[in-house]
Design a protein around this nucleic acid. Structure first.
Length: 902
RNA sequence: GGGAGUAUAGCUCAGCUGGUUCAGAGCGCCUGCCUUACAAGCAGGAGGUCACUGGUUCGAUCCCUGUUACUCCCACCA
């Protein structure tokens, strides 16, 4: 059978993914196995796959596939997030493009458009995840606003309200004038911004004197209701009891004195606008100041703005400065850089605004959430994020959970007026609310539901519970089985938004943590270390990458440079390494499947014999056990890139470069049956080890190897295997649910002996390279071993084969006219038929000698130090003595050789 | 303004809390090779005062002081 020399992932990846789906291999149902549960961090339903998702989901898939192969019942639940602000903004924009103004639509009409849009454009990202090979249980695909999740959110709201943890209050909130909604503190991003600091003249009422007040926001003077100075500020003592005229407005306001003011900043005098600054608001409360709100919700000025009414706040700023300047009320203007809060979703400048919002009390909930992380009930990887987490929870404020949007779970609160008083009823639905109204208040009139929806995170915080319907049906078999989930894989940027809150919800509703481990990935950056973003255009399209390098190649590329918690400077070139590796494995398959098998007893060709091959197999088995041990340790510590690197080297270096070369028959020669069986078996297990990282190529190769086995069972390998049997096998079995090999005891001595053998081979190859000797020319090797650390023994055949060596034998004296190299303390010689270049060899020997003499000096330095010999542990001193002996012996040998040459 | 983290080869990172798996890996680079699985490859090789400074110790990449440089998080200085 002809196999292409280049691995082509395209068709193969498609074939196997379809196969996995058809066979329902990703699907999980509770059974008596140990569960392994992962819930996907739900991407925005409107999102498209970016590199961050690639990294995140590759890691999840690796963990899930590995767990599955370890015999656990792996369940990876996919889904999307309704992302209320982002999605609503998109829908509004889409409607605007069609000439539809959101304000012209009723709530129901708008929601219809939004749902339709979601059905048409939503969930692209989940389809893209399939290209990556994600082994999600697609039958369980959920949406944060589907019926189960919606109802869960409503129930939780009602429950928390009834527990007294949710309240409604008028507070200063972060207002997004573009999205027309409040956002939480976490959704405000403070960005550096270059602005001006304006020095305004405030005249004293009835006098010709003025003071100067610095502000960055002159447009807010219409809302000024006081001027504040420090009570101990000498410069302003005379202001006591005076009233001050707001420039351009003409209103007289009181002077207040408070220690809040920083005397060093500006002029030490501060204008107070309680409606538009959180600090001013607090001062306003303290001194009973009037609060004048001068803005409309969209950031334009309202009637309090006087002649500026209707203008946008930034346009107004320009105009007002012009007008004040004209009136001689501006002292000076300075450039000024400060941090301005912007909305995470819309980038609009946040306006502090007083409004009625719903809040969730954090105090008790936060305390428990902190405890379970402190005591490692939930473990963070890397652990340094515990600090961040602690800091936030210790300074947490109540969570503003209402949003002035339509796309989301509508707050289940109803209002009605009775006796001139507005009453609030929180209930599961309108019917229930009506019932309460009737029973409790004797009211049977119309109810008005709260217009707002809940913060998106108020639904995602339930995700690990609501996915298994644990809110609506507590104690159902699914939630009992799958909860708590095992690992959560997410970015550190949502540690507050999501991770912390899921832990809170878990404690509140399940009395248990939502997951045992949290793996924080790094942020994917470009080569230059910049964050990947659409606006920079530095983010490669993941699907295009997959087209070019194969999903396996891209997965491997991502993982190789992604230690937990470290940012990942992504360079496309790294995917090449992954692609090359797939190709390497593919070619190993080509080699092995092309071998012919010798008849009954091993009748090895000239280049090998069965003991040689038996040793090779033995060594490879030991080596594999050793590396498996390493890999298991790496996984225990969530060091995925290290685990992958170990597996990579096992396959490429140990298996391909060493093992296959050891057992490879000479051209046209068959291989013995035992070795062949062993090779297929080892190769097959290698595929199992690699499968979590590279699911597609390993599935393909594994199948072909298993078919090789099948052929062998029928008779001595022949081409007359029943094709039906092959297709039956292919259609029934998958590498996915084979059992992951585990480490077993291995013989360290054998591995050490191989290392010696490898050094001899490398020594000979090096001589060939540096002396220009052809690899085809067979050489002899003789050696003088100083102790039993140097053993040729069972590796003799292998050394001869891989080094192309004729005879290898011990001698008691250095032969004349030979090239030499050392392995440990042993001296190896390659006698030359022609004369060697004496000067060259002498030079090399002198260099070696110099090195060892220097080495010996440093060892002797330690050993002659009385304090070292008496202070250091005996074992350490003994090691130094050994070094000394070895060095002395090497020096003696080198000197003897130099003598012989000279 | 507070808090945390990082600094090791050209690049990306390991180095399990002080001593031959202590100076490592992968990529890149250099030198030979189209050697019948693979040039997406094979063989060999060169690269590092472990940021700087003191200190503890018989001994420091590792522990402690300070300095410098980056990164991240938090915070209402107009």
């Amino acid at each position: 059978m002809e196999i292409a020399s280049k691995y082509d992932p395209r068709a193969i990846e498609e074939k196997w993914y379809q196969f996995w789906i058809d066979k329902k291999l990703f699907h999980s149902e509770p059974d008596n196995r140990v569960p392994y549960t992962v819930v996907i961090p739900p991407p925005n339903v409107t999102g498209v796959l970016h590199m961050g998702h690639m990294l995140n989901n590759t890691i999840q898939d690796v963990l899930v596939r590995r767990a599955r192969m370890q015999g656990k019942n792996a369940c990876w639940v996919p889904g999307t997030d309704h992302a209320s602000i982002a999605t609503e903004a998109k829908v509004v924009k889409m409607l605007a493009e069609q000439g539809i103004d959101k304000r012209s639509l009723s709530r129901d009409e708008f929601m219809k458009h939004a749902w339709q849009w979601k059905e048409e454009h939503g969930g692209i990202i989940l389809k893209q995840l399939r290209r990556l090979g994600a082994s999600c249980d697609w039958d369980r695909t959920a949406f944060t606003m589907d019926d189960v999740r919606y109802e869960s959110v409503i129930r939780v709201f009602v429950d928390l309200y009834n527990k007294g943890l949710i309240y409604r209050g008028v507070r200063m909130v972060n207002w997004d004038p573009q999205a027309l909604t409040a956002v939480s503190d976490e959704e405000v991003i403070y960005k550096e911004s270059h602005g001006k600091l304006f020095y305004l003249r405030y005249y004293i009422e009835g006098e010709d004197r003025y003071i100067v007040v610095a502000t960055t926001r002159p447009e807010t003077i219409m809302g000024d209701t006081a001027v504040c100075v420090h009570p101990e500020d000498e410069r302003y003592q005379w202001l006591r009891g005076k009233k001050i005229v707001v420039p351009g407005v003409g209103r007289a306001v009181p002077v207040i004195m408070d220690e809040y003011v920083d005397r060093e900043f500006g002029t030490g005098a501060l204008k107070i606008t309680p409606a538009h600054d959180i600090n001013d608001y607090n001062l306003g409360m303290k001194y009973g100041l009037e609060s004048i709100d001068i803005f409309n919700d969209n950031g334009t000025l309202n009637d309090h703005g006087g002649k500026y009414a209707g203008m946008d706040r930034f346009a107004c700023r320009k105009q007002i400065v012009k007008d004040l300047e004209a009136a001689g009320l501006i002292e000076k203007i300075e450039d000024y850089t400060n941090k301005v809060g912007r909305s995470e979703r819309t980038d609009a400048v946040i306006e502090p605004k007083l409004s009625a919002q719903w809040f969730l009390k954090m105090e008790g909930i936060a305390k428990r959430a902190l405890e379970v992380v402190e005591d490692d009930t939930v473990r963070f990887h890397p652990a340094k994020f515990k600090n961040t987490y602690r800091h936030w929870l210790e300074n947490i404020k109540d969570w503003c959970i209402s949003r002035q949007l339509w796309w989301g779970q509508r707050i289940p609160a109803w209002y009605f007026e009775q006796n001139g008083k507005v009453e609030t009823i929180v209930a599961l639905d309108e019917e229930a609310a009506r019932k309460v109204a009737a029973e409790k208040y004797g009211y049977t009139g119309a109810l008005r539901q709260d217009e707002d929806v809940l913060d998106t995170w108020f639904s995602s915080w339930l995700w690990p519970i609501s996915l298994f319907d644990g809110i609506r049906n507590p104690g159902n078999p699914e939630i009992n089985y799958y909860y708590p989930t095992s690992d959560l894989i997410t970015g550190p940027d949502i540690i507050f938004f999501w991770v912390a809150r899921m832990i809170m919800a878990g404690e509140e509703y399940m009395h248990d943590v939502p997951f045992r481990n949290v793996y924080f990935t790094g942020i994917v950056r470009d080569k230059l270390g910049r964050k990947m973003s659409k606006s920079l255009g530095n983010s490669p399209d993941p699907i295009e990458l997959i087209d070019r390098y194969g999903a396996d190649g891209v997965r491997m590329g991502m993982l190789l440079t992604a230690p937990a918690g470290n940012d990942l400077p992504f360079d496309e070139a790294i995917c090449e390494q992954g692609r090359n590796f797939s190709n390497k494995l593919w070619n190993a398959l080509r080699l092995v499947s092309g071998w012919q098998i010798a008849g009954e007893s091993g009748n090895p060709g000239e280049s090998g014999n069965s003991t040689t091959n038996a040793t090779a197999v033995q060594w490879m088995e030991q080596r594999m056990a050793q590396v498996l041990e390493e890999i298991e340790k790496d996984f225990d510590q969530y060091r995925l890139s290290e685990a992958l690197m170990a597996a990579y080297k096992l396959a490429w270096d140990d298996f391909c470069s060493w093992y296959l070369e050891m057992v490879k028959p000479a051209f046209g020669q068959p291989i013995d049956r035992e070795t062949y069986d062993a090779t297929i078996s080892i190769f097959s297990r290698l595929m199992l080890i690699l499968h979590p990282f590279m699911p597609f190529v390993t599935e393909e190769i594994w199948h072909q190897l298993e078919i090789e086995k099948l052929k062998l069972k029928i008779e001595s390998k022949s081409d007359t295997v029943n094709p039906e049997q092959i297709s039956f096998f292919n259609s029934q079995f998958s590498i996915m649910n084979q059992h992951m090999p585990t480490s077993v005891y291995y013989d360290q001595r054998l591995l050490d002996e191989f290392d010696t053998a490898r050094e001899v081979i490398a020594g000979v190859r090096n001589l060939r390279n540096t002396r220009g000797l052809s690899p085809k020319e067979m050489l002899d090797v003789s050696y003088i071993a100083k102790d039993d650390r140097f053993r040729v023994g069972r590796f003799e055949g292998i050394i001869r084969k891989l080094g192309n060596i004729g005879k290898i034998a011990p001698v008691s004296e250095a032969p004349a006219g030979a090239l030499q190299f050392m392995v440990g303390t042993a001296e190896c010689y390659v006698p030359m038929s022609q004369n060697v270049n004496k000067e060259e060899e002498l030079k090399k020997l002198q260099e070696d000698l110099k090195y060892y003499e220097g080495f010996l000096r440093s060892v002797m330095g330690k050993l002659s130090n009385e304090k070292f010999v008496s202070g250091a542990p005996a074992a350490v001193v003994e090691k130094e003595r050994n070094k000394q002996r070895d060095a002395e012996s090497k020096i003696a040998a080198l000197k003897a050789q130099i003598e012989a040459l000279g």
